[in-house]
């Protein structure tokens, strides 16, 4: 039976935006799993993890409150699913603040009124990874595998905001295991990867790359040292930073990294028998050629 969720894609998952490959592969993945994602109509940006400085408290929280208010107005469903780490974090933080702080809640009622909206705090922001694990289940995820990625060594790079501060399904902050389990289910081998929860530099890769290039180098070096053929991640910022700046890292440190970085959703689509295009693998910057022998 089709499972339906309210969906908040966020700016990077828009058509031709930086995580277009995430969105396309997520849609393919959900199609195979018979999940329907109903996009919140007319959603706005959450201002990500840098909105605090110019927005301040109430305007910043209002961004996510508007999205939750729209979700509540447009559907009776309680779950709002996000695929972007920062979008998910912003929705959850806002929802928690509204439920825990009566003063903020009262102010937000007044703020939302200006946009002709209300929100009572009762929705449940969830990450798509949680939906896969809790609602679909490991067994089903495994049953779908048609092209096991046998022999591939993969570094599961969980990163920051899909892991901290909220965590996925109660998994550990220091050594989460769900991504390694996903790699295993796809038939590949998760390597011991000591930068699993390290930071890629986040928004500072945009504004002050020279300060965070070393962090990206350490992640790539650790993946290489662990013998990984590719890196897999759930986060659009991790994916972008670790993939697009590899040439810069190579220039800066005299290294020769050329490691593909793909999303968990791309890996699942590949292992479940989807096409190169359905997995959006044609949209990689460092080509994921190691997947070619498995994908049509």
């Amino acid at each position: 039976m089709t499972k339906t969720y309210t969906f908040y894609p966020g700016c990077s998952s828009e058509k031709k935006a930086s995580a277009a490959n995430l969105d396309i592969s997520v849609q393919s993945m959900c199609h195979i799993l018979d999940i329907r994602l109903n996009e919140i109509k007319d959603w706005n940006c959450c201002s990500a993890s840098i909105g605090y400085a110019e927005g301040g408290e109430l305007p910043r929280l209002a961004l996510s409150a508007r999205n939750l208010g729209l979700a509540q107005k447009q559907s009776h469903r309680k779950d709002v699913v996000a695929t972007c780490a920062a979008c998910w974090l912003a929705l959850r933080e806002t929802n928690d603040r509204l439920n825990e702080d009566a003063e903020i809640k009262a102010e937000m009622d007044e703020v939302l009124q200006a946009a002709h909206l209300t929100y009572d705090g009762s929705l449940r922001p969830r990450h798509l990874v949680e939906v896969l694990i809790e609602d679909i289940g490991w067994d089903t995820l495994k049953e779908k595998v048609k092209k096991p990625l046998t022999g591939l060594k993969i570094a599961g790079y969980v990163g920051c905001q899909t892991n901290r501060p909220f965590g996925v399904c109660g998994d550990s902050f220091e050594n989460p295991t769900y991504l390694d389990k996903m790699i295993e289910i796809c038939g590949a081998t998760p390597v011991a990867f000591d930068k699993k929860v390290a930071c890629c530099g986040g928004a500072l890769a945009f504004s002050e790359l020279e300060k965070v290039c070393g962090l990206i180098k350490d992640i790539l070096q650790s993946a290489k040292d662990s013998g990984a053929d590719l890196i897999v991640t759930p986060c659009p910022v991790c994916q972008l930073n670790v993939e697009v700046y590899q040439d810069k890292v190579n220039q800066m440190f005299g290294t020769r990294f050329k490691i593909p970085v793909v999303y968990y959703s791309q890996l699942f689509v590949a292992a479940w028998g989807g096409s190169w295009k359905q997995a959006a693998l044609h949209q990689q910057i460092v080509p994921a050629n190691v997947l070619k022998r498995f994908v049509r």
Binding site: C160, Q161, R164
Partner: peptide
């Protein structure tokens, strides 16, 4: 960089 290491630790 909003990595939340400090916060969870």
């Amino acid at each position: 960089v909003s990595c939340y290491h400090c916060m969870v630790r």
